[in-house]
Design a protein around this nucleic acid. Structure first.
Lengths: 332, 332
DNA sequence: CTGAAAGCGCTAACAT
DNA sequence: ATGTTAGCGCTTTCAG
């Protein structure tokens, strides 16, 4: 059997309450007894049982993290931001992949609450009413990272996707008449916002039917390759393509290069996210920078505030985005 | 307060023991009472407290995962394999990044054991005696994934790195007289094995001082870029470079292309791992395939066997590797 | 097939 | 400054 607080108490000739106090850094312990206890702990190799502690204190110092896919470059970066801040505040993370599957997501939320996490970070594509109901009835705080709840009822950290897409589109429109857009999966809010930003900029420039230039992908490299095929079949050809993820943008660039189309001379390509991939391609990718790590970090920080019942002025945080021009677009 | 098993018992007019039985699927319950209990659970919205359960049963159905860096493409893929199998066997994962820092690693092992995980998956660069001591004295099973313990005292899942590097080197030597090697950080066993494989193949071909062709990187893209710079300064130039990670290999390829060196015509480049990056570059990367996902999955599966006290014939699993030739090397 | 009761290892009043 | 004593919510004998 493992050594318990009781064993330590006996070894040190004190009560278990005293042992508990020194283990928890309670100042109300005479230095001498503190030392006695520490010695006993050392001698016995005592290690506090966090489960027992959790049951007694109703705090587990662990938070749940529901993520679409940890093997995605985008989400892995977010997860790192979450974990770093969690560690900083002495929390551990229970991490599960949802594959954006609604049933899995709902199940995971419940499983994690069952494990008595002190809080939850949720990342996903589509926040439904069912999600919101779970979030609202949860006994512990929840924060969304890089995922938007239109009702704004759940605390969240994001960038302004509409604005970001608008900015990129507008920039591209300075040098291009025909601009295609490769969107992500159609049923997610973030994608809709990006789409709206693209359309708004297009319409502002007097392009009346931006829909004709839109092709749908799924954020993957292969779907970028496919998107280019589709674009090549358009009656009128675009001179630039705005792609809603870096990974797809690499697919678009390589699809073009495989056909002898030069980037950016014949075709400009613009990405979204600024993942590490953006500099791991030739030409290097101009893109919208979305600070994934920071979104994760800020979401976790926000969650700690809720868990500590601190005041938070604005539960729906919008982090700044910016544009970075590299070599996949024409320099002016 | 949350509803407890006791509330359900009263609501259903049975004892908490009976509630516990139906919750745990114990067959010794009359269907009628089972239904009564289920109804009560439904009505009250009861959700078992996993912490209390863990304390009473001494099982938490969670396993710890210590990983160097979840934002690395290589490790993220491993983690996905681990998590999928964990889910399949109904375990949750507590995930922490170690940055390959020995103190952090040791601390994390202890923190996780303190949280009463039922098992532990460890990934890291260098297994020291201190690690092995912790592993051996642990009360729960531990498995290494893509991590080698030379003493073989800890169960593990790997490929044969020496052999894999040997195979790649030998293949490259068929068409090349001068072959450089970009190694990973020098102080890890896996890197040493790769190095040994490279040297063995070189020596077999009568190259007496393979050391002169070795350059050290840190597995990152940028270090691939730098490695190429160093190689360009060698008095004799290689016609092929074997790089010990795909990410570095991309750096090498792009470094070459940035200087007008054509791959594979002027310079062949060979990677290691077969991460998704290998097909996200032009020319596509010839590489050694290391099945990261499977390594994670098999390691987790192995761990479940230990946790269930099942027999395991071979605790040190070697998964097969293979070579895949793409366009960064000359087709014969 | 069901109930009673004793813990699991620790925290948190409450005393002293 | 330290000890005593209830629980925390559940599993698990042991009876019946």
């Amino acid at each position: 059997m493992n050594v318990t607080i009781y064993d330590v108490a006996r070894e040190a000739n004190v009560s278990m309450a005293t042992v508990s106090r020194v283990v928890n850094g309670n100042p109300n312990v005479k230095p001498a007894t503190r030392k006695k206890v520490h010695d006993a702990i050392e001698r016995l190799g005592y290690r506090p049982n966090a489960v027992a502690r959790g049951l007694a204190s109703k705090k587990t110092t662990t938070v749940g993290v529901i993520i679409p896919d940890i093997s995605s470059i985008f989400f892995a970066e977010l997860a790192r931001g979450i974990e770093d801040i969690a560690t900083m505040y002495n929390y551990n993370i229970i991490l599960s992949n949802s594959d954006q599957n609604k049933d899995k997501e709902l199940h995971l939320i419940n499983a994690m609450l069952g494990k008595q996490v002190d809080g939850l970070i949720f990342m996903g594509g589509n926040i439904t009413e069912d999600h919101i109901r779970e979030f609202k009835t949860s006994s512990v705080p929840i924060a969304l990272a890089a995922t938007v709840d239109e009702t704004k009822e759940t605390p969240s950290v994001n960038i302004n996707y509409e604005e970001a897409a608008y900015d990129a589109t507008k920039l591209l429109l300075e040098n291009n008449q025909n601009l295609a857009f490769v969107s992500g999966p159609e049923d997610t809010i973030i994608n809709t916002e990006k789409l709206n930003g693209y359309k708004r900029a297009m319409e502002e420039q007097g392009k009346d039917s931006p829909e004709q230039w839109i092709v749908t992908g799924d954020y993957s490299y292969d779907s970028g390759l496919e998107a280019l095929d589709q674009i090549l079949e358009m009656e009128e050809q675009p001179t630039a393509i705005f792609v809603s993820s870096d990974e797809m943008a690499l697919g678009v660039i390589h699809g073009a290069q495989d056909r002898g189309i030069r980037v950016p001379e014949d075709l400009e390509v613009f990405g979204f996210d600024n993942t590490r991939l953006a500099t791991m391609v030739r030409p290097t990718l101009s893109t919208v920078v979305q600070p994934m790590y920071d979104i994760g970090a800020v979401a976790m920080r926000l969650l700690t505030k809720f868990m500590n019942k601190e005041e938070v002025e604005e539960p729906n945080v919008i982090l700044p985005h910016r544009i970075i021009e590299r070599n996949s677009t024409q320099q002016k």
